[in-house]
Structures are given as C-alpha cells and as structure tokens.
C-alpha cells in the first residue's frame, strides 16, 4: 500500500513547507507569550478581593471556554478589522483570537496552581511578619509555579496543535501549506502523513518533558 509513496514530493516542496512551519512556530510562540501574560492578569483579578471584578473575569473565562476555537477564530477574524476600521493582516486577527482564547485556559491553570498552596503556608508567612506582597513573592509563588509549569507546558502543546485551525481562514501555517501542495499535486497521503509525523515527534517529546518536569519539580 506504500508502494507508490513518493518522498520526492516532500523534498521538492521543503522550502515551502518550512515557511509554513515557521509561521506555525511564530504563531505558537507569540500566542503562548501573550496568553500567559493575559492569563496571569486574569488569574490575579479572579483571586482579587473585589468581588465584582472576580465575577467579570470568571464570566469571561467560562464564556470563552464554552466556545469552539474555530468560532473564536471566525469572530476575531471578522471583528478585529471592523474594530480598527481598516483591513488587518489575518495573522494579527488570528493571533489576538489565540491570545484571548488561551488566556482563559492559562488563567485557570495559574489559579489552580496558586490555590494548590496550602492555607497554612500563608498563615505562617503572615505570622512571620511578611507583607502580602512578600508572602506572595517568597512563599506562595515559588510553590505554585512548581505545580503549574508542567500543566502550562501541556497546555502549550495543545496550543501548538490548535494553531493548525488557522486553516479555516487560509493562513499559510504548516498544515495549510501541506494542504496546498497536497491538492495541487494530488498527493494527500504523503503530505498529511508527513504533517502528522512531524507533529507527533514534536508533541510527543514535549509531553515527555512535561512528565519529567512533573515528576521532578511538582510538590
């Protein structure tokens, strides 16, 4: 069944596919960075003593988490140019969609990490005379971070896989580039298998790393 498998097509289109891969990596890196930053802000707001603020953030997080990512992409792809009032490159619209979407998931992980620190630790820090900021900085966060880093890494692997959904708006990421070659040269088997194997290798290695981190650093 693999008799007609044509590896040459992969070599012949290597530069084109590599460009797609670069876009995938770029989008992932930017979306992870933006998502983490916004996620930290959301998590802090959600744990804030000002209740209405916490509720608004909770509503935002639950709202985005009940939407399919594809629909979120469509929303922002249409919404961003309208809000700005002029055409915007699809890359930026999609990037904003990913940041807003992933931040909801990251904030839940960060919140769970902070909540996983036992209450006694906070009381002990207070009893020692540390200020709120100091107990956050020296007692809570060092423990929380160790618990949440493996989960954040796992979520970022999911995010890398999710970037393939930009296919729906025709952005030329790795999968879309492969798809273009596949339909032009009528070689779906080679191209899709290649994409699957590349993702499998990257994501499998990264998830092994996440497991190791969990075993070594989690409390």
């Amino acid at each position: 069944m693999f008799g007609s498998f044509d590896f040459g097509i992969l070599l012949a289109n290597a530069p084109f596919l590599w460009n797609g891969m670069l876009l995938t990596l770029q989008l992932t890196a930017l979306a992870v960075t933006g998502g983490l930053l916004l996620g930290v802000v959301l998590a802090v707001l959600r744990l804030s003593p000002i209740k209405p603020l916490a509720w608004v953030v909770e509503a935002y997080v639950n709202f985005l988490r009940s939407m399919p990512l594809i629909l979120v992409i469509f929303w922002f792809y249409t919404l961003v140019p309208k809000l700005i009032g002029r055409p915007v490159s699809g890359f930026y619209s999609v990037l904003i969609a990913f940041v807003m979407f992933e931040a909801a998931y990251y904030s839940e992980i960060i919140r769970a990490g902070i909540s996983s620190v036992r209450r006694g630790q906070i009381s002990a820090a207070m009893a020692l005379g540390l200020t709120k900021m100091q107990s956050m900085r020296y007692v809570i966060l060092p423990q929380a971070v160790r618990n949440m880093v493996p989960v954040l890494l796992t979520q970022s692997i999911v995010m890398l896989q999710d970037t393939s959904l930009v296919y729906v708006v025709g952005l030329r990421d790795f999968l879309t580039s492969a798809d273009i070659v596949a339909s032009r040269d009528n070689r779906p088997t080679e191209l899709y298998m290649f994409v699957a194997i590349v993702f499998l290798v990257i994501c499998f290695s990264a998830s092994r790393l996440a497991n190791q981190l969990r075993r070594r650093y989690s409390l």
């Binding site: 896989q161 296919y167 999968l175 699957a196 993702f199 499998l200 994501c203 499998f204 998830s207």
Partner: peptide, 10 residues
C-alpha cells in the same frame, strides 16, 4: 500528539 484537524484529514 497529532492535531485533531490533521487526524480529520488523515
């Protein structure tokens, strides 16, 4: 470890 969309195409 394979994106769902890639699985769909496969």
């Amino acid at each position: 470890n394979i994106p769902l969309l890639v699985q769909m195409f496969l």
